[in-house]
């Protein structure tokens, strides 16, 4: 079979993806530009300006950026700590990877039943307890995956390089930060992407923990979207979705440019 044919076959699932996801996304963009789901007059950018000026949208974006960013960094830090430890103790690696990967697979409802018993998740408490619940749940579920991904990246680094560094007098910590991590840079970027993706998806856990209307400290953008949904303001949900896509594009674009410059350098 020629390469073109194989690729043509490979394009079929992407056509399915386009039908199931891109077409609805296109329809969502349409809804963002009309008055409402009940009134299809063209609204231009009115929905976007309404949403962007809404204090709860701003609260959601703020929490998404700060809390979300904090969660990603915390998970990354945890991964950076756990991965070398796994590498250093090969006998524990098998069990370690099983323990680290399992939380990702445990269904959200199962995990939340425990978390809601341990933490005080009442929405009236705008306190550290809600944030702690969400952050610890996110770390438990996803930091392990980051660690495993990073571990596999560290494994690929040739032993000769680290031996050479040891000969030059570099200690384990220095070798890790000065040699291994930079060499695993691309894989580290992959870990960041995964952690970011998981951060966006941890709305489900947040919803299960806190309900539709959590305290202001953990009110994410997705809560705002859900809220507008049950109020039948789909035009605002759509506007939020478009803004979220643009936000993600900007982040991705920035990351891409940084990586490109690094490669050129």
């Amino acid at each position: 079979m020629k390469k073109q044919k194989l690729l043509l076959i490979g394009a079929l699932p992407l056509l399915g993806f386009a039908a199931c996801y891109l077409v609805p996304l296109g329809m969502t963009v349409y809804y963002a530009l009309v008055n409402s789901a009940f009134d299809d007059r063209f609204a231009g950018l009115d929905n976007f300006s309404y949403v962007m000026s809404n204090q709860y949208f701003q609260m959601g974006m703020q929490n998404l950026s700060l809390l979300g960013g904090g969660m990603i960094l915390a998970a990354l830090l945890a991964s950076l700590v756990i991965a070398p430890l796994l590498y250093r103790h090969p006998k524990l690696t098998g069990l370690g990877m099983a323990v680290l990967l399992l939380p990702l697979l445990i269904p959200s409802v199962s995990a939340v039943s425990l978390w809601s018993a341990v933490f005080d998740t009442r929405s009236m408490l705008a306190s550290a307890s809600s944030q702690a619940a969400l952050i610890t749940l996110y770390l438990w579920k996803y930091a392990g995956v980051g660690a495993v991904l990073l571990y596999t990246a560290l494994q690929k680094i040739p032993q000769a390089i680290t031996d050479a560094a040891a000969l030059d007098g570099a200690g384990a910590v220095r070798t890790y930060f000065a040699i291994r991590l930079p060499m695993a840079g691309e894989q580290l970027a992959g870990v960041m992407i995964f952690l970011t993706m998981f951060m966006f998806r941890c709305y489900k856990e947040s919803y299960l923990l806190f309900g539709d209307y959590p305290s202001s400290k953990v009110y994410m953008l997705q809560h705002y979207m859900n809220h507008q949904y049950v109020k039948m303001n789909f035009q605002y949900v759509a506007a939020c979705a478009v803004l979220l896509v643009l936000f993600a594009l900007i982040l991705y674009g920035a990351a891409f440019l940084i990586m490109k410059r690094r490669r050129l350098a």
Partner: peptide, 13 residues
């Protein structure tokens, strides 16, 4: 990007 979007965004479509 589609992985990042919550399902509410495309629920009605």
């Amino acid at each position: 990007l589609l992985l990042l979007l919550p399902f509410q965004s495309i629920m009605v479509p």
